[in-house]
């Protein structure tokens, strides 16, 4: 924008000079040279502006117009974006008629658990650790240590409690409502339940073939089985 107007000014100035020169000297050559130069300058300006930076806001652009300095605007009060009515209380509030629930709003499949693992590893692991013991890297750097998921109290908490903590925070933990979306919250809760199970499992609960594997571990020749697990996060 500014480049274009600046070159336009220059063009006017040059063109004006050319006219005056032509009147004074009476030569057409001078005017021709200035004309050629002006056209060349227009090309330069076209190259420089090139629509690369158009006068519209991109996501997260700064704005001098709004007092908070952001081009991204918050929702006006008492409005609901299309497709975000969120009437399903179980899915979006984590409760049923305002009371805590201990069921999931959708079936927990292997896929849901996998999603839960990914999301848990992205958002929860920094503090809660990969196994849920509360020894994540940020805790080792000095953040308050969260209660282990394998603690008796947490093992007995309802699913609603976990949903509420993700949305509203708890103690030193801030709200993760903006970072973790509703379906992912439930997937994470399902994975936390799996972690709790993993630390309190009974050998007899395992399928027969896994018990067999535990009693007669394979020889180290099959050494690359551990690597497949790495890709999970």
């Amino acid at each position: 924008m500014s480049i274009r107007s600046r070159s336009y000014d220059l063009w006017l100035k040059l063109f004006g000079t050319g006219q005056r020169d032509a009147r004074q000297t009476g030569g057409g050559l001078n005017r021709l040279a200035v004309g050629v130069l002006a056209v060349a300058l227009l090309f330069v300006s076209a190259c420089a502006s090139n629509h690369r930076d158009q006068p519209y806001y991109e996501a997260q652009d700064p704005s001098a117009f709004f007092p908070d300095g952001k081009a991204d605007r918050p929702l006006p009060p008492n409005t609901v974006p299309q497709g975000q009515l969120r009437l399903d209380e179980h899915l979006y509030q984590g409760t049923s008629n305002g009371r805590p629930v201990n069921t999931f709003p959708f079936p927990v499949t292997a896929q849901v658990l996998q999603r839960g693992q990914q999301q848990y590893n992205a958002h929860c692991v920094p503090c809660h650790g990969f196994a849920g013991n509360g020894d994540g890297m940020i805790v080792r750097r000095g953040y308050s240590r969260p209660t282990s998921y394998h603690d008796e109290r947490l093992r007995n908490e309802s699913l609603s409690h976990y949903y509420d903590v993700i949305v509203n925070g708890y103690g030193a933990m801030p709200s993760y409502a903006d970072q973790v979306y509703p379906r992912d919250r439930w997937a994470i809760i399902a994975y936390i339940r799996a972690l709790q199970l993993s630390q309190n499992a009974n050998v007899r609960d395992l399928p027969a073939e896994d018990q067999e594997l535990l009693n007669h571990p394979p020889t180290p020749a099959a050494g690359d089985e551990g690597e497949g697990e790495e890709g999970g996060h």
Binding site: A59, Q60, Q119, N121, A122, H123, V125, P126, M137, I138, R141, Q179, V180, Y181, H233
Partner: peptide
């Protein structure tokens, strides 16, 4: 610290912008 990309840039998965 091993923090996953998605801890900060979670919207990359859902939207056009990864988001600061």
């Amino acid at each position: 610290d091993g923090i996953d990309c998605r801890y900060c840039h979670q919207s990359a998965e859902y939207s056009a912008v990864a988001g600061v």
